[in-house]
Simulated scan of single mutants.
Amino acid sequence: MDPQIKLLFLDEHAIEGAARFGVRQEELSFIGGFQNFIYSYTREGCKYILRFTPSTLRTQEGLEAELEWIRYLAENGMSVSEPIPSAQGRDVECVSGKMVDFYATSFRHAPGRKIGYPECLGNPLLYEQCGRMTSHLHKLTKRYEPLARRHSWERNEYLLRARKYIPPEHAPILRALDELKERLASLPITPDNFGLIHGDINVGNFTVDETGEITLFDFDECQYSWYAEDIAIQLYYLLYVFGEDSKSERKVQYEHFIEHFERGYTEDGRRLPEGWKDQLSLFLRLREIIVFVGMYRSWDLRQPDDWTRDFLQDSRMRIINGLSLIDDFQ
């Protein structure tokens, strides 16, 4: 969370936004959030999410496009955390602030449980299910004809604001970002390899029920990009925990994920996006820069712990040298 935005979000905003959805202040439980302010509440035995998005991050039109897509996915058989309209029947309620407005949206709480670390590592059943889920998502988005449209990859907030959050001593990171964006802009775009993607699939953004079914949520980063990016993001968060001194373990994890994810994705005769394996390295590099920017935006890194210090050092080395987490394995 941008510290300046955090200071501008007041209890009165949460109270007013909750009231728009028929929720009392005492029913709210603050969960947290990396870009948004997230609360939970219970109604008639069912759990829901209430999200507040600063107007500096998203437009109302962009949020409406997000919710429109989620509803389309749900109506076509995908397990997602569906949006809930306000008491006035609106998907998005605007709560006015003095300097920044906050958009309130609500969703059904995803059933099941999250699978965190280390359970998500070396987990073939999970990777196959992730492959099935991602394949279903991409199949549906190829048929999707939206009324409202989300932004495309180059308008990603992390990329647009990298210069604001990255300290001057990391100027080589910004140069690497510019070079990578030029490379990505030259990739071919076809209906089979480019479309609306979730943009942040990782173990923190889905739950798994007792049958193994995945429910996907947090579509806040959805954007138009190459489908390979949706795959690379999942891979990144399974590999970044292995430092430069653990490359052998990273290689095993990479091969494990690719084998089982591909099996799940292609299970019903669906084909992976053309050129996806060749593009993985590029999108892993992009995700690494986004994570680097996000850490400097949201964390106090003046005295990092040992793991964070080592990660930032390794990450900076890879970024400025144009390397990805898998370059030694392909």
Score class of each variant (00 low, 15 high):
residue 2 D to T: 04
residue 7 L to V: 11
residue 7 L to G: 05
residue 7 L to C: 10
residue 8 L to F: 13
residue 12 E to D: 08
residue 14 A to R: 13
residue 19 A to L: 13
residue 20 R to M: 03
residue 21 F to N: 09
residue 24 R to Q: 10
residue 29 S to C: 11
residue 30 F to H: 02
residue 31 I to H: 05
residue 34 F to D: 09
residue 35 Q to L: 14
residue 41 Y to H: 08
residue 43 R to G: 08
residue 43 R to I: 02
residue 46 C to K: 13
residue 47 K to A: 15
residue 48 Y to G: 05
residue 50 L to C: 09
residue 51 R to Y: 04
residue 51 R to T: 08
residue 53 T to D: 00
residue 54 P to V: 10
residue 57 L to I: 14
residue 62 G to N: 13
residue 64 E to S: 02
residue 65 A to N: 07
residue 68 E to N: 13
residue 70 I to F: 05
residue 70 I to R: 12
residue 71 R to S: 10
residue 75 E to W: 05
residue 76 N to A: 07
residue 77 G to E: 00
residue 77 G to M: 04
residue 81 S to N: 07
residue 85 P to C: 06
residue 86 S to T: 00
residue 87 A to I: 15
residue 88 Q to H: 15
residue 89 G to K: 02
residue 90 R to Y: 14
residue 91 D to E: 12
residue 92 V to C: 05
residue 92 V to E: 05
residue 98 K to R: 15
residue 98 K to F: 06
residue 99 M to E: 15
residue 99 M to K: 15
residue 101 D to G: 03
residue 105 T to Q: 03
residue 105 T to C: 10
residue 107 F to I: 09
residue 108 R to G: 00
residue 109 H to R: 03
residue 110 A to M: 01
residue 114 K to L: 14
residue 114 K to N: 15
residue 119 E to T: 08
residue 124 P to M: 10
residue 125 L to G: 10
residue 127 Y to N: 06
residue 127 Y to W: 03
residue 131 G to T: 00
residue 131 G to K: 12
residue 136 H to Y: 03
residue 138 H to E: 02
residue 138 H to R: 00
residue 139 K to I: 01
residue 141 T to I: 03
residue 142 K to P: 06
residue 143 R to Y: 01
residue 146 P to E: 12
residue 155 R to D: 15
residue 160 L to E: 06
residue 161 R to A: 13
residue 163 R to L: 09
residue 165 Y to C: 06
residue 169 E to T: 04
residue 169 E to L: 06
residue 173 I to L: 07
residue 174 L to P: 01
residue 174 L to D: 02
residue 176 A to D: 04
residue 180 L to S: 03
residue 181 K to C: 13
residue 183 R to Q: 04
residue 187 L to E: 09
residue 192 D to I: 03
residue 192 D to W: 02
residue 194 F to V: 08
residue 196 L to R: 06
residue 197 I to E: 02
residue 199 G to S: 12
residue 200 D to Q: 07
residue 201 I to M: 14
residue 202 N to Y: 11
residue 203 V to M: 14
residue 204 G to N: 14
residue 206 F to S: 07
residue 207 T to V: 10
residue 212 G to K: 03
residue 219 F to T: 12
residue 219 F to H: 11
residue 220 D to P: 11
residue 220 D to C: 11
residue 228 A to T: 15
residue 228 A to S: 15
residue 231 I to V: 12
residue 236 Y to W: 04
residue 238 L to Q: 14
residue 238 L to H: 12
residue 245 D to Y: 01
residue 249 E to Q: 12
residue 249 E to W: 13
residue 255 E to Y: 06
residue 262 E to G: 13
residue 264 G to R: 01
residue 268 D to E: 09
residue 268 D to L: 00
residue 275 G to P: 11
residue 277 K to N: 07
residue 283 F to T: 01
residue 283 F to W: 00
residue 287 R to P: 08
residue 289 I to M: 04
residue 291 V to G: 06
residue 292 F to Q: 01
residue 295 M to A: 12
residue 295 M to E: 11
residue 296 Y to N: 02
residue 305 D to M: 02
residue 310 D to T: 07
residue 310 D to Q: 15
residue 312 L to M: 15
residue 314 D to K: 04
residue 315 S to P: 04
residue 318 R to W: 00
residue 320 I to E: 15
residue 323 L to T: 01
residue 324 S to W: 01
residue 329 F to C: 03
